[in-house]
Amino acid sequence: TTIEWNGTKITVDNPQKAKELAKKIAKKLGLTVKVHGNTITIE
């Protein structure tokens, strides 16, 4: 699972952990999480 935001890509083996990490990042930055299959985008 890949997390993408602002040109940065982070690959996380565990999809559940990836989703939790994305939510934490999005919350800190005041952004939203969008899931597209194996890609999680923070916008």
Score class of each variant (00 low, 15 high):
3 I>A: 06
3 I>P: 05
13 D>N: 13
2 T>L: 10
17 K>V: 11
5 W>K: 03
16 Q>T: 11
16 Q>N: 10
35 V>R: 06
34 K>R: 13
22 A>D: 00
39 T>N: 06
20 E>W: 15
40 I>S: 00
43 E>T: 13
23 K>G: 07
26 A>F: 08
23 K>Q: 12
31 L>Y: 07
29 L>R: 06
24 K>E: 08
15 P>F: 15
36 H>P: 00
18 A>G: 02
40 I>Q: 00
32 T>H: 09
2 T>R: 05
29 L>N: 05
39 T>W: 07
33 V>N: 00
1 T>W: 14
26 A>H: 04
2 T>W: 09
15 P>D: 04
9 K>L: 08
7 G>D: 04
1 T>P: 07
4 E>P: 05
28 K>D: 07
35 V>E: 05
26 A>D: 01
14 N>S: 13
18 A>M: 03
9 K>Q: 09
2 T>V: 13
5 W>T: 03
15 P>S: 06
3 I>T: 06
8 T>K: 14
35 V>P: 02
40 I>A: 01
4 E>L: 11
19 K>T: 08
31 L>P: 01
26 A>K: 07
21 L>M: 09
32 T>D: 04
21 L>C: 09
40 I>N: 00
16 Q>Y: 13
10 I>R: 01
12 V>S: 02
7 G>A: 06
6 N>H: 12
5 W>N: 02
4 E>I: 15
37 G>W: 04
15 P>A: 10
5 W>S: 03
24 K>P: 00
27 K>A: 11
40 I>C: 02
40 I>G: 01
20 E>Q: 14
38 N>Q: 06
10 I>G: 01
32 T>Y: 06
22 A>I: 05
10 I>A: 01
2 T>A: 07
32 T>P: 05
31 L>I: 07
12 V>K: 01
9 K>V: 12
10 I>Q: 01
35 V>N: 02
28 K>S: 09
4 E>V: 13
3 I>M: 05
41 T>H: 09
22 A>G: 02
24 K>F: 15
7 G>C: 15
23 K>T: 11
41 T>E: 05
21 L>F: 10
6 N>M: 11
17 K>Y: 12
17 K>T: 09
40 I>V: 05
30 G>A: 03
20 E>A: 15
17 K>I: 11
35 V>F: 12
12 V>A: 04
4 E>Q: 11
3 I>D: 04
8 T>A: 09
28 K>R: 14
14 N>G: 05
30 G>L: 02
42 I>R: 00
39 T>S: 08
13 D>A: 14
40 I>K: 00
42 I>M: 07
31 L>K: 04
7 G>L: 06
43 E>F: 15
22 A>E: 00
28 K>A: 12
37 G>P: 02
34 K>T: 12
12 V>G: 01
21 L>R: 02
33 V>C: 07
43 E>P: 05
20 E>D: 08
8 T>G: 12
28 K>M: 12
11 T>M: 11
15 P>E: 08
27 K>Y: 08
24 K>I: 13
12 V>H: 02
10 I>V: 05
35 V>K: 04
29 L>P: 03
4 E>C: 14
10 I>K: 01
23 K>H: 12
32 T>C: 12
36 H>W: 09
27 K>P: 00
14 N>P: 06
5 W>A: 03
29 L>M: 08
27 K>H: 09
10 I>Y: 08
9 K>T: 11
15 P>G: 05
4 E>N: 09
25 I>C: 09
4 E>K: 09
24 K>H: 10
20 E>R: 15
19 K>Y: 15
41 T>S: 08
8 T>Q: 12
39 T>R: 11
4 E>W: 13
24 K>V: 09
28 K>H: 11
38 N>V: 05
21 L>Y: 09
36 H>E: 12
30 G>Y: 04
34 K>Y: 11
26 A>Q: 05
16 Q>I: 12
10 I>N: 01
14 N>D: 13
19 K>M: 15
4 E>A: 08
32 T>K: 12
13 D>I: 12
19 K>H: 12
38 N>F: 07
38 N>R: 06
26 A>I: 04
17 K>G: 04
39 T>A: 06
5 W>G: 03
16 Q>K: 14
34 K>L: 08
35 V>C: 06
32 T>A: 10
25 I>Q: 00
30 G>Q: 04
36 H>Q: 12
20 E>Y: 15
25 I>L: 11
39 T>Q: 08
10 I>T: 02
18 A>N: 00
20 E>T: 13
27 K>E: 11
14 N>E: 03
11 T>N: 07
9 K>I: 12
18 A>D: 00
1 T>I: 15
34 K>M: 08
39 T>V: 13
20 E>H: 11
23 K>I: 13
31 L>H: 04
13 D>R: 14
15 P>L: 13
26 A>C: 05
43 E>L: 14
9 K>C: 14
2 T>K: 08
6 N>K: 08
34 K>H: 12
7 G>K: 06
35 V>I: 14
24 K>A: 12
15 P>I: 11
23 K>A: 12
12 V>N: 01
17 K>P: 01
31 L>T: 03
12 V>R: 01
25 I>W: 10
16 Q>C: 08
22 A>F: 04
6 N>Y: 13
24 K>T: 07
37 G>H: 05
35 V>L: 08
37 G>D: 05
29 L>T: 10
1 T>A: 09
34 K>A: 07
42 I>F: 13
24 K>N: 06
33 V>M: 11
20 E>L: 15
24 K>Q: 10
34 K>W: 08
8 T>W: 15
14 N>W: 05
35 V>G: 01
13 D>E: 12
12 V>I: 13
35 V>Y: 12
14 N>M: 03
6 N>E: 07
11 T>W: 15
41 T>Y: 15
29 L>A: 05
19 K>G: 04
27 K>R: 13
32 T>M: 09
8 T>P: 03
42 I>Q: 00
29 L>D: 02
19 K>F: 15
13 D>M: 15
20 E>F: 14
39 T>H: 09
36 H>M: 11
30 G>M: 03
3 I>C: 11
26 A>W: 06
13 D>H: 12
29 L>E: 03
14 N>C: 08
28 K>N: 07
38 N>A: 07
6 N>G: 12
40 I>L: 08
36 H>F: 11
33 V>H: 01
16 Q>F: 13
4 E>F: 13
13 D>G: 11
29 L>S: 05
42 I>H: 01
21 L>S: 00
38 N>W: 05
29 L>K: 05
32 T>G: 04
27 K>T: 08
11 T>R: 11
1 T>M: 14
3 I>V: 09
9 K>M: 09
26 A>P: 00
34 K>Q: 08
35 V>M: 10
25 I>D: 00
22 A>K: 01
36 H>Y: 10
6 N>T: 09
9 K>S: 10
23 K>C: 15
27 K>Q: 11
3 I>F: 04
21 L>D: 00
34 K>D: 02
6 N>C: 15
5 W>P: 02
17 K>S: 06
8 T>N: 13
1 T>Q: 07
9 K>R: 13
33 V>I: 13
14 N>A: 03
11 T>Q: 09
18 A>C: 07
2 T>S: 08
33 V>W: 08
21 L>I: 11
36 H>I: 12
21 L>K: 02
38 N>P: 03
34 K>I: 11
8 T>E: 06
31 L>N: 02
19 K>W: 15
11 T>H: 12
8 T>F: 15
31 L>C: 08
5 W>D: 02
41 T>Q: 06
16 Q>M: 11
38 N>H: 07
38 N>L: 07
12 V>L: 13
38 N>K: 06
27 K>S: 10
17 K>A: 10
17 K>Q: 10
25 I>K: 01
2 T>P: 06
18 A>W: 07
24 K>Y: 15
42 I>W: 03
36 H>T: 11
30 G>R: 05
21 L>A: 02
30 G>T: 02
39 T>E: 06
13 D>T: 12
8 T>R: 14
19 K>L: 15
11 T>I: 14
22 A>Y: 02
5 W>L: 07
19 K>I: 15
24 K>M: 14
22 A>Q: 01
36 H>R: 12
31 L>E: 01
16 Q>A: 11
2 T>E: 07
11 T>E: 07
32 T>F: 07
32 T>S: 10
39 T>C: 09
37 G>N: 06
8 T>V: 13
18 A>H: 01
39 T>G: 03
21 L>G: 00
15 P>N: 07
1 T>Y: 13
38 N>T: 08
10 I>L: 07
21 L>T: 02
12 V>T: 04
10 I>C: 14
25 I>A: 01
37 G>I: 03
29 L>Y: 15
31 L>D: 01
29 L>C: 13
6 N>F: 15
13 D>C: 15
15 P>W: 14
14 N>I: 04
17 K>E: 08
3 I>R: 04
7 G>Q: 07
16 Q>D: 10
40 I>W: 02
11 T>C: 14
16 Q>H: 10
33 V>P: 02
1 T>R: 05
26 A>S: 06
43 E>D: 08
10 I>M: 06
19 K>Q: 10
2 T>D: 06
41 T>I: 13
27 K>F: 09
21 L>W: 14
7 G>W: 10
24 K>W: 15
33 V>Q: 01
15 P>C: 08
11 T>S: 08
37 G>V: 03
28 K>C: 12
18 A>R: 02
